[in-house]
């Protein structure tokens, strides 16, 4: 083969290919080993830093030492690691201890804010998450501005940070941008908003009632109100049910009436048990079962005749939620016989 190298171009190409591949294999082995060395070193470095910082931060948190004690232990090259370290602490703490962590973090956040302009969305999102957790008061405007970031990931990091603040004013900024989270799961956004507390109920009710808003946005508002079990919202939802056509919105509104409604809402719910749409019918039946004190054996027979298996399932869940064990047993027995 060696003799043919100069004469046969195909052999030559194959030999070059083999040599090239061997070099590539060696380079990949080198890469794997380099990653391993880096990972091991990172692990060791983290352990070393934690050993240094753990006693110092406990000392500062307990008031036994000044902030300077820990600041002096942070080498310039370790600043980003230190922020990451503080972030872990901050998640576990609340109140005055949390405020101490935020105070310690303050001198290190500046360089991180520059990362909010990074071209990689993950870097931007991480920076927002960190700044939002450790320095929200100071960098509030930056975080609110990040709601308009072209990346959903960054906007979501900003939204989570703002809703975690517990401030209705900041959460209102998120509410105003809800339509940009249309790809995310509505229940997740709703639960984020609920973290702010009952103060969110009023703006959420306004959003729910806003006929010009996208149905997906209104669904988020309705789901959040259902999580808050807001009785005023149930009244509004009952009124809206008569005129809304979007299926997801109808199901969400029924869900709200289900958790926060009263017997007088039944007059708008009852017609929906005849809906051709199974999810609407199932939710309507469940709401009737929960709110109607006269829900009885006759209606159970009707429930069991429904073509959708979800109707009896949702009714049973509704009855279980109000402790109507006899009726549940009756439905189960009838279903078993069927």
């Amino acid at each position: 083969m060696i003799d043919d190298l100069g004469r046969d171009p195909l052999i030559l190409a194959l030999v070059i290919g083999i040599v090239g591949l061997i070099v590539l294999a060696l380079a990949l082995i080198g890469t794997a080993v380099r990653f391993r060395v880096r990972n091991n070193r990172t692990g060791r470095e983290w352990s070393r830093r934690e050993r240094t910082w753990d006693p110092l931060i406990l000392m500062v948190l307990s008031g036994a030492g000044p902030d300077l004690a820990i600041h002096e232990s942070v080498a310039p090259a370790d600043r980003l690691y230190f922020i990451e370290y503080l972030l872990r602490y901050a998640r576990r703490l609340e109140g005055p201890e949390r405020a101490v962590i935020e105070r310690i973090a303050e001198p290190y956040l500046g360089p991180l804010v520059n990362r909010i302009g990074h071209r990689d969305e993950a870097f931007r999102a991480r920076a927002i998450r960190t700044v939002g957790t450790l320095g929200q008061a100071r960098y509030r405007d930056v975080i609110v501005a990040a709601l308009d970031d072209p990346s959903d990931l960054v906007a979501m990091a900003a939204a989570r940070s703002l809703t975690q603040s517990g401030s209705p004013a900041l959460a209102a900024a998120v509410l105003a941008k809800l339509s940009r989270f249309g790809r995310w799961r509505p229940s997740l956004i709703a639960s984020m908003l609920v973290r702010v507390g009952p103060a969110m109920a009023e703006p959420l009710r306004a959003m729910m009632a806003d006929a010009s808003a996208e149905p997906a946005v209104r669904v988020i508002a309705v789901e959040a109100l259902a999580e808050l079990s807001d009785p005023l919202a149930a009244d509004a939802a009952a009124r809206l049910l008569a005129g809304v056509t979007d299926r997801n919105l109808v199901v969400a509104l029924l869900g709200l009436v289900f958790v926060a409604g009263r017997a007088e809402h039944l007059k708008v719910v009852r017609p929906l048990v005849a809906s051709p749409d199974a999810p609407v019918r199932a939710r309507a039946y469940a709401t009737v079962a929960r709110l109607d004190p006269g829900f009885s054996t006759d209606q159970i027979a009707q429930v069991l005749r429904d073509e959708s298996p979800w109707v009896p399932i949702r009714v049973v869940e509704a009855l279980e939620s109000i402790g109507a064990r006899r009726l549940v047993a009756e439905i189960n027995a009838a279903a078993h016989r069927a």
Binding site: L10, L21, L28, F35, R36
Partner: peptide, 25 residues
């Protein structure tokens, strides 16, 4: 040719597997 292709096949197969190990790392 046979030997050369066999070698290419072996080395390329190895490269792909080693790449997977590097991905894991």
């Amino acid at each position: 040719y046979f030997t050369a292709f066999l070698l290419v096949s072996i080395v390329l197969g190895s490269v792909l597997s080693i790449a997977a190990v590097a991905l894991e790392e």
